[in-house]
Write a protein that binds this DNA or RNA. Structure first.
Length: 269
DNA sequence: ATGGTGGTTCGACCA
């Protein structure tokens, strides 16, 4: 069972790249964020042609939007909160069968939080912190079993999740109020599945800014200034099923691609 | 300290 999470930054614009991803990786389930497509305009036919007969999507005009594209049957999970009472299409969940038992899959797109890391001065940052607190509280109140949580969480929690820890300590995505909250949410019942495969002492990124041009090895000044904003968490009862994890870094070099790379995780039943 | 790029939608907002 291969699951991919990818902030695709416009599903309609990048349908050809989704096709390429599927041709190269043959994923069973793809969780996408920032689809930027309202539900009535969702390109369901094109997605079905890629082999995903089972689709759950929650979108709005212009912003946000999440979807789960699956080759295997999905049972939608509808009793999820309206985070921060905004109806802004940042979470969708469903369960599917893994080895004869259901697994619950949550796909999140956490608010980016704007530029100023001060909740008093920046309502977007306050929203981000409140969103993570709410999600933490909701999962804390549940019996988390056989659950996978993926998505663009827009926070790089560990020192080696950014290209320069000290330099980014006051940059939104890596500030202590964010990283502390994210790790507290994770600790309420999850294991970091990416760090299960790559030790915390090694650099690991999933996002490279569009604004950093010429980020090639030939340009060491700007090379590889990444952050790990995308995550895969699992409940401990699924750790024995974890088989492999890859950040498809090469996808960040595809023409007209997203600023996020897909994260691929393989499970065995 | 600033501005750098990209998507949605057509001026401004968001990332």
């Amino acid at each position: 069972m291969r699951i991919v999470t990818w902030n695709i930054n416009s599903l309609r614009l990048r349908l050809p790249l989704l096709a390429r991803l599927c041709a190269e990786l043959q994923p069973d389930i793809v969780c996408v964020q920032e689809t930027k497509v309202p539900d009535d305009l969702f390109p369901a036919d094109a997605v079905r042609k890629l082999g995903f007969a089972h689709i759950q999507h929650r979108g709005m005009k212009s912003y946000n939007g999440v979807a789960i594209l699956s080759r295997v049957a999905l049972v939608p999970l509808d009793d999820t909160p309206d985070w921060c009472a905004r109806s802004d299409c940042r979470h969708i969940a469903a369960s599917f069968d893994l080895g004869g038992q259901p697994v619950e899959l949550h796909n999140f797109y956490v608010p980016a939080g704007g530029d100023i890391p001060d909740p008093e001065a920046n309502p977007k940052f306050a929203h981000k912190l409140a969103f993570v607190d709410e999600a933490h509280a909701w999962f804390t109140g549940r019996d988390n079993r056989r659950t996978i949580l993926v998505g663009d969480l827009n926070i790089a929690p560990l020192e080696q999740d950014v290209w320069n820890h000290r330099q980014l300590l006051n940059v939104v995505s890596h500030t202590p109020p964010e990283t502390t909250r994210l790790l507290a949410w994770q600790a309420c019942g999850f294991v970091d599945a990416m760090r299960h495969f790559v030790p915390a002492s090694e650099k690991l990124y999933t996002w490279w800014s569009y604004r950093n041009r010429n980020w090639t090895e030939a340009n060491p000044e700007r090379w590889n200034r990444g952050r790990r904003l995308d995550h895969v968490w699992v409940t401990p009862d699924l750790m024995a099923s974890l088989r492999d994890m890859t950040v498809l870094r090469e996808a960040r070099d595809w023409p007209t691609t997203s600023d996020h790379a897909p994260v691929v995780v393989d499970f065995t039943p």
